[in-house]
Computed example of a mutant assay.
Amino acid sequence: MNITKDFTDLKKELKEKWLVYCERNETWIFNLMDSHRLWVKTQENIEEDLKSFIDANWQTSRPNSDFMIGVVSILSPQICEFIEVIMTATTDRTSIIKSLDLDFDPFLEIERRKFSQNQQATLIPASSELDDIREQIKQNSGETT
């Protein structure tokens, strides 16, 4: 059993679960964080090409650490063992979030992924276009369908 590898794998899995959770619950998370001023600023740069895809006034932030620790402990119960170990070194909840590699704006990451998918979709022809190209190749090579 390699604890470091297990922890690394668990953090990757946790990040994906966290992003899915945030995307599915975006409306009420925003309402809660906004109404109680629970956003924590993050130190992220927004890529230039992404700026045209998102709100121009986007401020990078994430939900507060207590909220996040509660959610991730439900999303991934095995993470609780690691949180207990981390808490022997520090009770600073922001440090715990950083050690879990979750100190980023989840909604910005979701937008990054949407933007990336959008960019890829424009590079890949639709299947009907591919079918047309295949048909032309067959016709040019003398094949019949």
Rank of each mutant, 00 (worst) to 15 (best):
I86R: 03
S99W: 09
P106W: 01
E111A: 02
E44P: 06
E26V: 00
L130V: 14
E135L: 10
T42Q: 04
F30H: 06
I110G: 02
N2S: 12
H36E: 12
I86Q: 05
E48D: 15
D66H: 04
E13K: 02
D131W: 13
K11L: 11
S61W: 00
I86V: 09
D131T: 10
D49Q: 10
F104K: 04
D132G: 02
V20S: 09
K51N: 12
D55K: 05
K138F: 15
Q139R: 12
P106C: 08
D6K: 13
P63W: 05
F104G: 11
K98F: 13
Q119W: 08
I86Y: 14
T90H: 03
Q136W: 12
I79G: 07
V40R: 07
T90C: 03
E16M: 00
C80G: 10
L14Y: 10
T144P: 08
I97C: 08
E143S: 02
F82C: 06
T60D: 00
A126K: 14
K17F: 06
T27S: 07
E111W: 02
D101G: 00
S73I: 06
R62P: 01
I124T: 09
R134P: 05
L102T: 06
W28M: 10
I54C: 05
K51A: 07
V71L: 02
N118S: 10
D132Q: 09
P63H: 00
D101R: 07
W39A: 00
W18E: 01
K41E: 14
D9W: 05
S116R: 11
I110N: 01
S65Q: 02
K11F: 11
I96G: 07
K11V: 04
M87C: 13
F115Y: 14
T8K: 00
F67A: 01
S127H: 15
P63I: 00
M1Y: 14
S128N: 12
K114F: 09
L38S: 09
K11D: 08
H36N: 14
G142A: 07
W39F: 09
T145L: 11
E84I: 13
I83T: 06
R93L: 15
P125M: 01
N2T: 14
Q78Y: 14
N57I: 05
L38E: 05
Y21T: 01
E23G: 06
E16Y: 04
D105C: 00
F104Q: 01
T90Y: 13
L100N: 03
S76M: 10
R37H: 15
I110L: 07
T94K: 04
G142I: 04
T144R: 08
Q139L: 08
A56C: 11
K11T: 11
E129I: 08
E129H: 09
F7Y: 10
I86W: 11
N31V: 08
V20M: 06
E143L: 11
F53M: 12
T122F: 14
K98A: 13
N31P: 03
G70I: 03
P106H: 04
P63T: 01
P106M: 01
N2C: 04
A121H: 05
S128G: 08
I137F: 13
S65E: 10
C22A: 04
K5G: 04
W58D: 03
D55I: 02
L38G: 09
S95F: 04
S61G: 06
T88I: 09
T4R: 10
D49P: 10
F107N: 00
E48H: 03
T94A: 01
L32N: 05
C22P: 00
E13S: 03
L75A: 02
S116T: 11
